[in-house]
Amino acid sequence: MSTVENQVPVFEGIPSSDDLARIADLLVQAGLETIDLSDGKGARCFMRVDAPASAPYVPTSAAPSAPVETAQTDIAVKAPYFGVLSLTELAEIGTLVRQGDVVAQMRIGTLQVPVTVPVEGTVVDVVGQDGVVTGYGAVVVRIEPTV
């Protein structure tokens, strides 16, 4: 599994047009609109793309999945940060979870941010894809609360 820092090109001075295109693609994949890169020696690259932050990234190699029927009372557990999504063993349909359980980690570099469940219930849908760059606020799993 690759990490974001392995995908962002290293540059000294002005990035090439190919590097800029690759950075723009990464922004869109992550659901971000801007990035500010610096090499610490004075070289800086600021980029803005015209892509809605809420647009979900769908890998081109992934086949479209059938819609999953979920009750209207389910709760969407969303990514609290952007980064590479790493699902835990709790992120499986039918798993009983408690409030505060970690269903995934968002990783960017060495930073890891847990994705926790806000209520006790059952996982009814796993929306997020393991190992995929995921944007802030993207739905990771859906929980049917215990009544």
Results as ranks from 00 to 15, higher is better:
residue 96 L to K: 15
residue 110 T to D: 14
residue 72 Q to M: 12
residue 108 I to F: 00
residue 73 T to Q: 11
residue 93 I to L: 00
residue 114 P to Q: 05
residue 78 K to F: 10
residue 62 A to P: 02
residue 117 V to S: 03
residue 112 Q to F: 14
residue 60 T to N: 12
residue 52 P to W: 07
residue 43 A to L: 02
residue 33 E to Y: 06
residue 113 V to H: 01
residue 34 T to W: 14
residue 33 E to Q: 13
residue 68 V to T: 08
residue 63 A to Q: 11
residue 43 A to R: 00
residue 70 T to G: 04
residue 99 Q to P: 02
residue 90 L to W: 08
residue 75 I to E: 06
residue 83 G to I: 10
residue 67 P to H: 13
residue 66 A to Q: 15
residue 83 G to V: 09
residue 92 E to D: 04
residue 97 V to D: 10
residue 73 T to E: 13
residue 30 A to G: 10
residue 80 P to H: 04
residue 75 I to G: 00
residue 26 L to A: 05
residue 63 A to W: 14
residue 85 L to A: 00
residue 67 P to R: 09
residue 70 T to C: 06
residue 74 D to C: 10
residue 114 P to M: 01
residue 13 G to S: 08
residue 22 R to S: 14
residue 8 V to E: 04
residue 112 Q to V: 15
residue 109 G to K: 01
residue 92 E to C: 01
residue 54 S to N: 14
residue 107 R to P: 01
residue 55 A to W: 07
residue 50 D to E: 13
residue 30 A to H: 11
residue 102 V to Y: 07
residue 21 A to P: 05
residue 51 A to P: 02
residue 73 T to L: 13
residue 30 A to L: 15
residue 18 D to S: 15
residue 111 L to K: 03
residue 27 L to Y: 12
residue 51 A to Q: 14
residue 49 V to T: 05
residue 99 Q to M: 02
residue 93 I to A: 08
residue 93 I to R: 12
residue 84 V to W: 07
residue 49 V to H: 05
residue 105 Q to N: 13
residue 34 T to S: 08
residue 56 P to M: 04
residue 44 R to Y: 07
residue 26 L to D: 02
residue 94 G to M: 07
residue 107 R to E: 06
residue 72 Q to W: 12
residue 65 S to T: 13
residue 89 E to W: 00
residue 82 F to K: 05
residue 46 F to N: 06
residue 90 L to H: 15
residue 103 V to Q: 07
residue 94 G to K: 11
residue 91 A to I: 01
residue 100 G to V: 10
residue 65 S to P: 02
residue 42 G to S: 03
residue 81 Y to H: 15
residue 65 S to R: 12
residue 86 S to V: 08
residue 34 T to R: 10
residue 60 T to R: 13
residue 30 A to P: 06
residue 90 L to R: 15
residue 17 S to N: 10
residue 73 T to Y: 11
